[in-house]
Simulated scan of single mutants.
Amino acid sequence: MTANTCILVGDIGGTHARFALAKQAGGGLECIQVLRCADYSGPEAAIADFMGRANGPEVLAACFAVAAPVAGDTVSMTNNHWVFDRPSIQRRFGWQQFLLVNDYIAMALGVLQVPEATLIRLGGGAPDKRRPKLILGPGTGLGVSALVPSHQGWLPLATEGGHVDFAPGDETEASILGRLRAQFGRVSVERLLCGPGLVNLYRELAVVRGRPATLSLAEDISAAALAGVDTLAVETLQRFCTILGRVAGNAVLTLGAYGGVYLSGGMVPAMLPFFLGSGFREEFENKGRMTPLLAQTPVWVVTDPCTGLYGAASALELPEA
């Protein structure tokens, strides 16, 4: 790779597409841009727009993290209208290599590179460096991944852990589950732990409490809760945090992820003071006989918005890449 060539990396979620350039796989990022997916007909239009903004650099390879299962050459985004056809995009832009990875594969790789100052600790003891690390976070959906230690270093694990079944923690949540089941049939944790999930939780909690649901957007519910001007919104956000704690604790037990938990995505950093004072940690540790294991497990909130881009650049160095 010469001084005039670079790698294109992308982090494509349900709402936003982040793009950047890197001089080498795993290298630093330049020309970072955040685009709204709804403003583009598909990935080709967004890529072309970004390349124009970056003054058309010569790109030899590209890696995009996408919020969808990655199997084969065609990927349909889970929470927006974009469809990736890897070979056709590669041909159009003339890249020598084009890799698609699940967004939480990239997020997992990215947490190994973010500055320590962007990690906010929430309890626990020293991480067990011999055990996996859990990475999860609510945004437009709920992403879940892990890093597994090996002789080759940390290996990322692709999962669809956001789609496991929701288990209520009390009678109020059991009532909410019943109402969501009537609407969706099977209810996954993502039906509550993401932006649209926050709306579901608020709307159904309003019915259970016999209150009017006056808000309809996740950002409005969060803003009202953070400002303390709507008690229903406050309870909704508190339950959001405790359910996230329960789900994270369950995932730690399932994976043996005593190497620590990294909470990423857009929602938790945006409500950080509220989150740090919520019932997340208490519910995270509330595992009966397994409570001592969870009490020792540290949790960090990842506040660097470029985590997925760092990981996409690193993914080009994976053996299968």
Results as ranks from 00 to 15, higher is better:
residue 111 V to G: 01
residue 311 G to K: 01
residue 238 Q to I: 00
residue 100 L to F: 10
residue 62 A to E: 02
residue 289 R to A: 14
residue 235 E to L: 13
residue 134 L to K: 04
residue 36 R to H: 10
residue 285 E to D: 13
residue 65 A to D: 04
residue 295 A to G: 08
residue 241 C to A: 15
residue 27 G to A: 09
residue 243 I to A: 06
residue 65 A to R: 03
residue 121 R to T: 02
residue 102 N to H: 14
residue 25 A to R: 11
residue 305 P to G: 02
residue 123 G to S: 10
residue 90 Q to R: 14
residue 147 L to Q: 01
residue 19 F to Q: 06
residue 211 R to K: 13
residue 266 G to S: 11
residue 150 S to V: 11
residue 146 A to M: 11
residue 199 V to P: 09
residue 317 E to P: 02
residue 278 S to W: 10
residue 58 E to K: 12
residue 66 V to R: 02
residue 28 G to H: 10
residue 222 S to K: 15
residue 291 T to W: 06
residue 90 Q to K: 13
residue 142 L to V: 05
residue 22 A to H: 07
residue 9 V to W: 02
residue 15 T to N: 04
residue 1 M to R: 12
residue 96 Q to K: 15
residue 144 V to S: 01
residue 178 G to D: 14
residue 90 Q to A: 10
residue 229 V to H: 09
residue 104 Y to S: 13
residue 80 N to P: 03
residue 268 V to Y: 03
residue 175 S to Y: 04
residue 289 R to F: 14
residue 37 C to D: 02
residue 152 Q to H: 13
residue 243 I to V: 15
residue 166 F to M: 12
residue 2 T to F: 10
residue 268 V to F: 03
residue 111 V to M: 01
residue 106 A to Y: 00
residue 128 D to E: 13
residue 265 G to E: 05
residue 68 A to Y: 08
residue 46 A to L: 05
residue 17 A to D: 02
residue 273 P to D: 02
residue 224 A to M: 08
residue 7 I to A: 02
residue 188 S to F: 11
residue 46 A to E: 05
residue 85 D to R: 15
residue 223 A to Y: 08
residue 254 T to L: 15
residue 293 L to F: 15
residue 209 R to Q: 15
residue 99 L to V: 14
residue 16 H to N: 13
residue 117 A to E: 14
residue 166 F to S: 09
residue 51 M to Q: 06
residue 33 Q to K: 10
residue 118 T to S: 05
residue 13 G to Y: 10
residue 89 I to W: 10
residue 319 P to Y: 12
residue 95 W to M: 09
residue 38 A to Q: 12
residue 109 L to N: 01
residue 310 Y to T: 00
residue 27 G to C: 08
residue 3 A to E: 14
residue 223 A to G: 05
residue 242 T to Q: 12
residue 308 G to A: 02
residue 79 N to T: 12
residue 3 A to I: 09
residue 259 G to P: 12
residue 319 P to S: 11
residue 197 G to E: 02
residue 143 G to F: 01
residue 174 A to D: 10
